[in-house]
Design a binder for these strands. Structure first.
Lengths: 233, 233
DNA sequence: AAAATTTAGCTTGTATACAAGTATACAATC
DNA sequence: GATTGTATACTTGTATACAAGCTAAATTTT
């Protein structure tokens, strides 16, 4: 059966140059649910149920699940099914380390390569809307934050770095959305973003590297501490 | 039909925690063919033909092709099929840049974290068999080289870094196997490997970083020059 | 009562039929 | 002769039937 009325809103771009309508749609929907913790870590993902709900057959659904499992957003065991990937301290530490390495170096390369257009766009993206009391505002804030960080790597013109940072930011979203440590955010990161941007604008690679490094590590440490406090392992 | 007699040799490990026999097998076989250039860049991959040859139905085959396309080893266009991914100068430049960033930093972290066992294994892996005149010896050499580089990242105990370097080394193999620039290798890289190992043994992070950086860039530049000479774009 | 074992149900794994879209070859037209 | 339109063959996209394997509950045994 060709799906008649399916949820039509693609909320998250598929990160791929492989636009195959149905699997991409399912991928986007599931990914959004996982990242936003609408589907909780360790929750089971049963193919049949998701098929019925999304009005799709198992083939495109499985394609989406496979993709998610390779991105480590869902865990898989043969013949035992899929689960939403758990959030672990070690996993998050590794993630911070990865982001620190790649994004700091990307900022340095960006400083070497940025054109005036790059700099203008970075400036436009640097200042984030931030209203910790507003639920909706918090989501917007997260999106804007990711947009800035992606814009920095994009300035390197290295699509491989870009893809790695995209995946990393995705994985990073989950602990953030959990609201864990939300209120611990001491100040709006816009200041750091502006500092990074100005270092890039001055083509000061080592400054860009240093500020980005501290920024990523700082944010990571805060969330890590909150995860520990919330008793994650 | 359950496949009765299929080629049984898995030549390349699947890089994943997702051991599902048939798709993994197909993935491994195709990947080996692509990396070894038995299947040439831009060659078309028609599902039916591969199914008949590998004695597998389309479902597991497509799962393997999807994985390969996300790893950028095969290119895909909706309704138009799969092709072996082309080798491009820009792609290779990006790859070198990625390896340089991640592996250099990984070497530094390895220097901070290496245990005596790590160091012993690194020493064992550092010296490579190298006989540029022997076809078989060349393949062994490539494998041993990858093994050393992987052992360095593994010392960081960061599985994300490990996965990235694994993929990167895979992509790197293809230009190497093309034999392009093979004879340009000025000397056996064992010396560099030993230098990296000794820096790690001394827990000298910045030396490890520096030597690895030069090593990766140097090797990359040589192959890049050869690709240019061979008129790749 | 606790442990082990069997069995029934459920979930995933694979194969295949059918639908939809694409490309190529051939013909008609400019 | 080049170009465009069209039909046909081929390839991929999706759905579904059936096989294989796991989980967990119920029954038996100690």
């Amino acid at each position: 059966m060709t799906p008649a009325a399916r949820p039509s809103l693609i909320e998250i771009a598929p990160h791929t140059t492989r636009p195959s309508a149905l699997p991409d749609h399912v991928y986007a929907v599931l990914k959004h649910r996982i990242l936003s913790c609408a589907m909780k870590p360790d929750e089971r993902l049963v193919e049949k149920k998701l098929c019925d709900e999304l009005r799709v057959s198992r083939t495109p659904l499985r394609e989406a699940l496979n993709r998610l499992s390779h991105e480590e957003l869902v865990a898989f065991q043969p013949h035992a099914g899929y689960r939403v990937a758990p959030i672990t301290l070690d996993g998050f530490r590794n993630l911070i380390e990865l982001r620190a390495i790649v994004e700091a170096q990307a900022a340095a390369l960006a400083a070497e390569r940025a054109t005036p257009e790059d700099i203008a766009e970075l400036r436009a993206f640097a200042t984030l809307p931030y209203d910790p009391d507003d639920e909706r505002g918090f989501v917007d804030y997260c999106r804007a934050n990711a947009r800035f960080h992606l814009r920095v790597v994009r300035t390197t013109h290295n699509s491989m770095l870009e893809n790695i940072v995209m995946s990393a930011l995705d994985l990073y979203q989950r602990p953030t959305y959990l609201r864990i440590g939300r209120q611990l955010d001491p100040k709006n990161p816009s200041a750091k973003h502006r500092a990074i941007t100005e270092a890039i604008a001055k083509h000061d690679a080592s400054a860009a590297h240093e500020v980005m490094l501290q920024h990523v590590r700082g944010g990571g440490e805060r969330i890590l501490a909150a995860l520990k406090a919330a008793n994650y392992h």
